[in-house]
Amino acid sequence: MAGLNQAFIVLVLRFVQGILALIVLGLTAYVANWWSHFWHAISPSQFNFLIFASVWTLVPALLFLILVPWRFSETRAHHKFVILGVEALTMLFWFAGFLALSVFLSDRVCFGHVCSAGRAAAVFAAFEWLAWAGTMAMAVMHVLRTRGHTSNGGKADPNLNIQEGV
């Protein structure tokens, strides 16, 4: 384990987060599309929220958490509390999303491919939440380790920079 540094672990987790977000996006979009065509109504909000969480993860969250430490580490955006906030918000979105979808599917009589896709989306969303919980725990540990230290102006840990993991 000594050969694995924290930057490499964060990079791997970011990759996993992106792949899982794409999987959940595909599954929930499939169910939402089927729902609107079959029932001629708006799809349930639980699926719509997971579509939002997937897009949030792919566009602002991962883009920010990868690009800012990599290219803009000297700016105010690379502050440890900003990174912690993005991590916490995204983790909260995934927790609420997979929990709401699980509750929605638990009292439904459901079968077929659409039902399987909905259940798979809930499972993959739970794994996505675990991945975000892992990176948020790393961010919390960094904030706690560096509390009271003002030598770096609140900058995030350089070991969490993506450029060192490449």
Rank of each mutant, 00 (worst) to 15 (best):
V59W: 06
V59G: 05
A61D: 03
A61L: 07
L62P: 03
L65H: 12
L65D: 07
L67W: 13
L67A: 15
V68G: 03
V68E: 01
R71E: 01
F72A: 10
E74N: 10
A77S: 06
A77L: 08
H78P: 04
H78Q: 14
K80Q: 04
F81Y: 14
F81Q: 02
V82F: 06
G85H: 09
G85T: 02
G85N: 00
E87G: 00
E87Q: 14
A88P: 02
L89P: 00
M91F: 12
F93V: 09
W94Y: 09
F95A: 01
A96M: 07
G97W: 05
G97N: 14
F98I: 04
L99V: 15
A100K: 14
A100C: 07
A100V: 04
L101I: 05
S102I: 06
D107F: 13
R108K: 15
G112V: 07
H113Y: 03
S116D: 10
S116N: 15
R119L: 12
A126S: 14
F127S: 03
F127I: 09
W129V: 01
W129H: 06
A131L: 06
A133Y: 12
A137V: 11
A139S: 14
V140L: 09
M141Y: 12
M141S: 06
H142N: 01
L144S: 10
R145E: 09
T146M: 08
T146Y: 02
R147Y: 15
H149L: 13
H149F: 06
T150E: 14
S151G: 13
N152V: 08
N152S: 11
G153M: 06
K155R: 15
D157A: 00
P158E: 15
P158F: 12
P158Y: 06
N159L: 13
L160P: 03
L160A: 10
I162K: 02
Q163Y: 12
E164M: 02
G165W: 08
G165A: 15
